[in-house]
């Protein structure tokens, strides 16, 4: 199992009130799954994604990734994991506005300490993979929303991470571009044997995933797997919560 979450709780103090963003989450995710995380606003989707991406530590519980509990790893180990195991795609793209598309992709390779020529070559290849080879020297403001998200996906892919964590990757895009981005993610999932965990409000986007998680008030309310060979979701059972998925 790639992820094993046991009793994960995350509490914040907001306006002098103790708020539980996650409240005793138990969850397992196997390598190679395409998981869509859904839920209403404030249900804990983004917090869960941050726990899975080693961006935050739980208040209590264990977040085991490949056998290592992310809750207790040192900051240096977490940094190393972020740079090698995870690739992030954000709703607002989060590109560095002063850097070109290629340089933005290169930022993901900086922690690897590779030579600048090799870095540029790999960044260019990643951009070519998302169909933006000819836009490599453009800064974000010169790119459309869809192109910026493609750059962000290239940045997430360039170091071949084991998991791609996408937080509302189509949230800022129009319908046509949304479909293009989802198709791109599907293509990558199918061709690279990567695990994709995607937070989305959009049921049509979620319907493309192999598994759908529904969060409510910081807990996993349901988990459903799509039947093999279709995008239709099978009804979830209580046993399926935390069960090993079937890869399509």
């Amino acid at each position: 199992m790639l992820y094993e979450l046991t009793g994960v709780t995350k509490r914040y103090v907001q306006a002098h009130k103790n708020v539980a963003a996650l409240d005793g989450v138990d969850l397992s995710i196997a390598e190679g799954e395409f998981v869509a995380v859904q839920g209403s606003t404030g249900s804990g989707k983004t917090t869960l994604l941050q726990m899975l991406g080693a961006l935050d530590r739980p208040t209590s519980g264990a977040v085991c990734f490949d056998g290592a509990d992310l809750a207790v790893l040192s900051e240096a180990r977490l940094c190393a994991l972020r740079s090698r195991a995870f690739g992030f795609v954000f709703q607002a793209f989060n590109l560095i506005p002063t850097l070109t598309a290629r340089e933005n992709v290169e930022t993901a390779l900086v922690p690897h300490g590779m030579h600048s020529a090799e870095r540029a070559e790999r960044a260019h290849a990643a951009l070519a993979e998302v169909g933006l080879a000819d836009r490599a020297s453009h800064v974000p403001v010169e790119l459309s929303g869809g192109e910026q998200q493609r750059v962000a996906i290239a940045r997430a892919l360039v170091r071949a991470p084991r998991v791609i964590l996408a937080d509302e990757p189509t949230g800022n895009l129009d319908e046509r571009t949304r479909d293009e981005i989802v198709a791109l993610l599907e293509e990558l999932w199918g061709g690279r044997d990567q695990t994709i965990i995607m937070v989305t409000h959009d049921s049509r986007v979620a319907g493309r995933a192999s598994r759908r998680l529904w969060l409510e008030a910081g807990t996993v309310a349901s988990s459903r797997y799509a039947p093999e060979g279709s995008n239709e979701l099978a009804p979830a059972t209580a046993d399926e919560l935390g069960a090993v998925p079937a890869r399509g």
Partner: peptide
Amino acid sequence: VREFGTLKALGWRSRR
């Protein structure tokens, strides 16, 4: 802040 948060998510160390 968002820029630095993104870089940290990409594995940049604080000292960098």
